[in-house]
Write a protein that binds this DNA or RNA. Structure first.
Length: 454
RNA sequence: GACCCUAUCGUCUAGUGGUUAGGACACCACCCUUUCACGGUGGCGGCCCGGGUUCGAAUCCCGGUAGGGUCGCCA
């Protein structure tokens, strides 16, 4: 008997990927990788009017961004296109014959009947016991409404199967062994279990994971800030951080660590350790983690992500020598929490149009400081080697001669070179900009002050 | 309304009958420092309430309360 674990993520292409859905996908993926099983991606696109290829791409792109690769499922967003795996098609819109066959089976077995053009499933009235791997044993009784009419529609009068039915049929046909999904499906699981039995098979194992809530504890819907995975993609969070953070929402390594390599999470992840209560989404912690990941990441990877972000922001990074770009970007590594901060933080490297922070200019470009800047300009012009250590010692020498703290010179100098009061290490940034640019920028600052004094 | 799940600092969590209830984010203070960030040190802050069980409950049981979910020809 084949005991390979088969799990699936079965999103509906609605045009967005909810952060809770992303975590459901992640937990399924983790369980598949942990057990050496198979992770299936199935697109539940039964709502034809609403589903588009773009909506499917949102899901595929989101999963790829997170690094969650699927062993079976669509290769593209085209329902009729290529796929991986031999249990397809993996788009529900392509599986109508399967549903028709399975409806027929229930009909002939007497588990379903036609009613006003629709087909309803004969649901049992007795309580159904769910043995959930996370929640434990749940005895689900009928609600008062259900008690009035326990049967439910599985095929609409227009011939379209409803979610509960197609979902169960596909899990059955695709050999899904573990259904890991949001707790919002726990109550419905009774229906699913009874349908599996009607088909004459044992239902899969169920694992209902707690939900992700807003910071205020209310349900997180598309409308809420931070509810969509796309915001983290667009804001330039480190995808590794999003994955790591999501792992920690409902699961814990229990050893007080937070930053954990994925391989290790894969090795240690298991269903029973998942907590049972809902979690509120803490953007601040994710932001912190994103910063940590950027700091820890290799220079090559950061360079890759950073150039992409800079280019996207409109900076003409390509026109600079690669060695220059690399050096510039490395001075920013570990200083930012998201890539979206990068254009503002490092833009001065890639444009000579330095605009001075008005408040800082008023405070720092005083006549006295401008005089000192002029002195610094001459000193830098005459430097034998234009390197960070040389620049630092030259500046400190001058500060000593003037009898002031180095910071008295540093702040105006930074403003002249970058237009800002914050940024990468000053001496390194100056070295990378190079003598020509730096002298030009000092001249500009001097001219700026000159024009202001008139 | 009925049914189901849950309940430890503001947030994420460790904790499974005996702990000064631990860690992380956030926040505050100080240190480091060319800015910012990082790092370091310290601080603030918690077992929802009420009954049991027990020599002893955050931990077990019951009841409240609160939050979440489900009862669709939505998914």
């Amino acid at each position: 008997m084949d005991t390979t674990v088969r799990v699936r993520f079965a999103p509906s292409p609605t045009g967005f990927l909810h952060i809770g859905g992303a975590r459901t996908a992640l937990f399924n993926w983790l369980y598949a990788r942990h057990t050496g099983g198979c992770f299936i991606l199935r697109i539940e696109d039964t709502d034809l009017a609403r589903n588009t290829r773009e909506a499917v791409d949102v899901i595929l792109d989101g999963l790829r961004w997170l690094g969650l690769d699927w062993d079976e499922g669509p290769a593209t967003s085209d329902p009729a296109g290529p796929s991986k795996g031999d249990r397809g098609p993996y788009f529900q819109s392509m599986r109508s014959s399967v549903y028709a066959r399975r409806v027929q089976e229930l009909l002939s077995k007497g588990y379903a009947y036609e009613h006003e053009g629709a087909i309803k499933f004969k649901m049992q009235r007795e309580p159904v016991t769910i043995n959930d791997l996370i929640v434990g044993e749940v005895k689900r009784e009928l609600t008062d409404r259900e008690a009035e009419d326990p049967d439910f529609v599985i095929v609409r009068s227009d011939g379209q199967p409803v979610f509960h039915f197609s979902n169960v049929v596909d899990d059955l046909e695709m050999g899904v062994t573990h259904v890991i999904r949001g707790e919002d499906h726990l109550s419905n699981t009774a229906k699913h279990i009874v349908m599996f039995r009607a088909f004459g098979v044992e239902p899969p194992k169920y694992a209902h994971i707690p939900l992700i809530l807003n910071p205020d504890g209310t349900k997180m819907s598309k409308r809420d800030k931070g509810a969509l995975l796309s915001v983290y993609q667009e804001q330039g969070y480190a995808p590794e951080a999003v994955v790591n953070y999501l792992c920690l929402l409902g699961w814990s390594p229990k050893d007080n660590r937070e930053i954990i390599p994925l391989e290790e999470i894969v090795a240690r992840f298991d269903l029973p350790q998942i907590v049972r209560h809902n979690a509120r989404f803490d953007m601040a912690k994710l932001l912190w983690m994103s910063g940590e990941y950027f700091r820890l990441m290799s220079n090559d990877r950061f360079y890759e992500l950073a150039t992409e972000a800079l280019t996207k922001s409109g900076l003409n990074v390509q026109s600079f020598p690669d060695s220059y770009v690399r050096a510039a970007i490395e001075t920013c590594k570990g200083k930012l929490k998201t890539l979206s901060e990068l254009p503002v933080y490092a833009g001065f490297y890639f444009t000579d149009e330095v605009t001075y922070d008005p408040e800082a200019a008023a405070r720092l470009f005083t006549p006295q400081n401008i005089g000192r800047l002029a002195g610094l300009r001459e000193a830098f012009a005459g430097l034998a080697s234009f390197t960070a250590p040389e620049l630092e010692s030259r500046l400190k020498t001058m500060a000593a001669q003037l009898g002031v703290k180095p910071s008295e010179l540093v702040h105006p100098l930074r403003l002249a070179c970058t237009g800002k009061t914050i940024g990468p290490s000053l001496y390194h940034l100056i070295e990378i900009l190079g003598r020509d640019r730096v002298l030009a920028r000092l001249d500009r600052a001097l001219a700026w002050a000159e024009s202001r004094s008139k």
